[in-house]
Write a protein that binds this DNA or RNA. Sequence first.
DNA 1: ATGAAAGCGCTAACAT
DNA 2: ATGTTAGCGCTTTCAT
Lengths: 349, 349
Amino acid sequence: MAKGTKMSGRRDGVTMKAIADEAGVTLTTVSRILNDKDNKFKYAAETKAKVFSIADRLKYRPNALVRGMQTGRTGTAGVMVPCDGFYTGIVAGIHDVFINHDTIMLLSWNNRSINDREETLERQIIHQMVDRRVEGIILRPSSEEFEKSYFEEIWERDIPLILIDRHLAKIETDFVGSDDILGGQMAAEHLISLGHRNMLFVGVGQTTSTSRLREEGFRKVLSESPNAFCRSLIAQDETIEELFLEQIRRDDAPTAVFCYNDDIARKVAKLILNAGLSIPKDLSLIGFGNVPDRESTLPLTTFEQHPFRIGTSAANMYLERIGEKAKGDVRTDIIKPELIVRNTTAPKS
Amino acid sequence: MAKGTKMSGRRDGVTMKAIADEAGVTLTTVSRILNDKDNKFKYAAETKAKVFSIADRLKYRPNALVRGMQTGRTGTAGVMVPCDGFYTGIVAGIHDVFINHDTIMLLSWNNRSINDREETLERQIIHQMVDRRVEGIILRPSSEEFEKSYFEEIWERDIPLILIDRHLAKIETDFVGSDDILGGQMAAEHLISLGHRNMLFVGVGQTTSTSRLREEGFRKVLSESPNAFCRSLIAQDETIEELFLEQIRRDDAPTAVFCYNDDIARKVAKLILNAGLSIPKDLSLIGFGNVPDRESTLPLTTFEQHPFRIGTSAANMYLERIGEKAKGDVRTDIIKPELIVRNTTAPKS
DNA sequence: ATGAAAGCGCTAACAT
DNA sequence: ATGTTAGCGCTTTCAT
């Protein structure tokens, strides 16, 4: 091997240099001709044709790593969301916008519950994205706790961040999600209109914005309705059965249950049926999310959140952000959920 | 601006150079210390400590673009699959393996039907991945037609390719998927054991390996069972209703229907119920995939394909491949589907 | 135990 | 209408 030739990893097969040599022009010429989208350069038609045809014949593909390093424009976004049917819809929306803007996503799931391992994992994922110089990040926070999180790492590097579905507790950020308060209100209005007054909300507590806000909207309407009232219950795998049964065995048991999401609603449905009660005859039930299930026999009254639209909106916000130099004001898009009445709600008997 | 300083896009904030300067060592030293996983270099403990602490304080993050360009190891994989619940499971499996091997995926969906636009789109996606120098690609082919496809572009560059779910027609490649023949056989055996003899297969034709092989296994068992026989029908949105009704109105109408997937099975179920027949009393019905649905009232007898396992297997195959220099023999992993008997199959009445 | 220097493939400023 | 040159931030070879 000739002196001065240093071997390292994989060398690209066809480079601009190779095209330049074959065309008898310089590297620069090739670079400019191949990248000249808006016809800024006045190269001879002949030169252009030659370069294009050689690039074509050699099946040249630009090295986006190098280009990204040079220009800062990698055309790559980081997306981190939980792995389920709802977020798949969001990712589909993001994808469909990106595909028309030469952008592709590095995808990672942040699935599991909030614990140290999860925190470590998410930080690792953010690092993977940052290291690859994503131009921005779209994510669903697994925790509202800004302090113990990796968001600083993103902000410090001035990487645009779009949050979806869940707010952060104290921080204003670009955000796309559902109108959870309105959703809660609509749930209450639906049940009130069916004659229910004694209700139960099943959620996951105050630290998850989606649960908190749905409960807030729900309670607001009930508080304005004569005689209506609501108890609440925190759905945890270990305790939900006992706590829920306790509620429906009361003398003043609720006649309607509003659950924070479909998953919980389906669990609750099982508990109700196992207790020998029937839905919606004895108890009306509403979920949230319009999420599919494998073996349900019970078409759930629920809320469609239009995940695809959440995705397209987030992607458009992303594209606007990375197209700007300045920071600008915080943007939000709050999408109205849609009540879908199926078979689990009925007039109070 | 000083002469010789050329401005281009975003410059990285903290570089190895910056660390080196602050530590009073060279760039090389920093590079080696920061990358020295297996303790190959014998730098003074003091030097190491200094470099690490500065990197830490400055929140240094390596530029993976540069590293990828240099070494060919980008730690990035391309994944292209359709967007639905089944593939989300596969992607989850891939993800969980990758996360433990410092690998992250560029994800894109190849959703829609096979037409020119789709072909263009998929080629564009492959280019996006190739340009970013993915080390390998995992994908579900949208078409079996190798000729009219972009696979050459992948092979020509010696990028390892793992196919999932669907085979290519004439080409041997690394592959992970379900044992579709066995699935078809199991479906037939289940129906035979329930007393059915007159069956209908609803698929998407011979050019999709999953449909073809499921039908093949199904027919094989029936051909070995006395008096059993099977008609087939191609499920296309426009014609399925008419064709299917034609079948169930025959004098010798089938008593059991095996559908290529759950989606079609659910469509067929609606047609059956609309025709005034009941499931499984008049007609038994089997799907494939164990895919969730939003409003089903009919827990479907179907096959679990273990998408998560398909994903982990594909990811492991991927990692093996990119860890090798040589090409080696084609690898395959065929995963056994599992019959899940729910409420849509019953003894022939 | 450390450094110097070449070079990866490209972009962009500065020429003519 | 095209070329020259200096980088980008790193890895790797070759020295000492």
